[in-house]
Design a protein around this nucleic acid. Structure first.
Lengths: 109, 109
DNA sequence: CCGACATCTGAACAGGTATTCAGATGTTAG
DNA sequence: CTAACATCTGAATACCTGTTCAGATGTCGG
């Protein structure tokens, strides 16, 4: 559909950085949990994803710094949510992909 | 649109692995080059992306092992192309994203 | 068969990064 | 103010991974 435009080095680096951010099991699990639930706070995220609260907090720090998630303070709790529709789309497309390609790698002669 | 389904740990790991695979500047540049050109061989990819042929070859090895790219032998050259529409979509969505979010991180109070 | 081309491979070094731990910060209830 | 809760932070360790280098493999033209 859309014409293929020449992509700049800067854009490539930015794209790689975004993918890299999503390419960690801890962060990925947090993002999918948020994609499902809409909004969760740290303790819940720790329980749901099976990580320590410190680990979750550190992961959220990175996601927050890149604007992928947003925190909303409610008393002592801080509710986090995905703050970017593009990321939602990436998560959905990838879920479809992994649903079809169950095995790690498919080989060909 | 689609109902949010509970995602399994296995799927999360697979999703993270895919994102991780895309989250390297060298590999990302190769993929965007292939997205633009359709099909390229190693030497060209090395020139276009500014990497050594060894580096490109090693990167393609990983991409090939995960079925993201496919190689087609034509004499001494091997033409590589993206072998997955989902990946094309991921690349396009991310390009849109990075086009809108030029700066690395956006802060909020 | 030979030489040049195109690509691949394995080992080693270097750089980046996620987790843990202990403790600091901020928040609420009484 | 104090105690308990919720989250964040920084430093240190350990792990993973990408690049380089030298050379191996496979392919073509004559």
């Amino acid at each position: 559909m859309s014409p293929i435009a020449q992509i700049t080095t800067k854009e490539v680096v930015a794209a790689a950085a975004l993918f890299k951010l999503l390419g960690d099991p801890t962060r990925t699990s947090l993002l999918y949990a948020l994609l499902e639930a809409g909004e969760l706070y740290v303790s819940d995220l720790a329980l749901v994803t099976g990580n320590s609260e410190s680990t979750v907090s550190a992961a959220l720090r990175l996601l927050r710094a890149s604007g992928v998630v947003t925190g909303r303070r409610d008393g002592r709790k801080i509710w986090y949510r995905l703050s970017d529709d593009h990321v939602r789309e990436l998560l959905n497309v990838t879920r479809e992909h992994t649903a079809h390609n169950d095995s790690d790698a498919q080989e060909q002669s």
